[in-house]
Amino acid sequence: MYSEKVMDHFSNPRNVGELEKPSGTGMVGNPACGDIMKLTIQVEGGVVKDVKFKTFGCGAAIATSSMVTELVKGKNLDEAEKISNSTVAEALDGLPPVKMHCSNLAADALHAAIEDYRKKQAEEAAAK
C-alpha cells in the first residue's frame, strides 16, 4: 500500500532526534487521531542549517516527517515556508488516499517550528 520511497524513509528515517538548543520547535497532531510530530530546527543566517524530528504515528507519519527534514535542510526560510504537505507527499511518490489528511502533517510541523523561531526573534528584538 505504501510506495518504495515511503518504506525507505520509514525503515531508514533521516534526522531522527531532537536538537539540544533549537532555534524553533513545532509540535502538531494529537493522540486522538494517532499522529504527533515534533520538529526542531536550527536557523543560521536565515537558513535552516539543521533539523530533527520525533514522531508518534503510522508509517506515513514517520516517512513524511523524515522527508520534510531532507527537503528543508539548507533552504532559506522563505523557501522552507513554501514546502507544503502535498510537496512532501509528492516527494514520497504519493501516499494512500486515506493517509493524505490524517498522517500528512510534517509540513505543518515545519511551519509551526518556523513560526516559533520568528516569534522568538521578534521577542528578542523587542527586549533589546
Partner: peptide, 14 residues
C-alpha cells in the same frame, strides 16, 4: 505504550 500500532505492524511485516 508510546508507539503506534501500524508502524509496529509494518516492522513485523518486514
Amino acid at each position: 505504550e508510546f508507539v503506534e500500532g501500524e508502524s509496529l505492524l509494518l516492522n513485523l511485516d518486514m
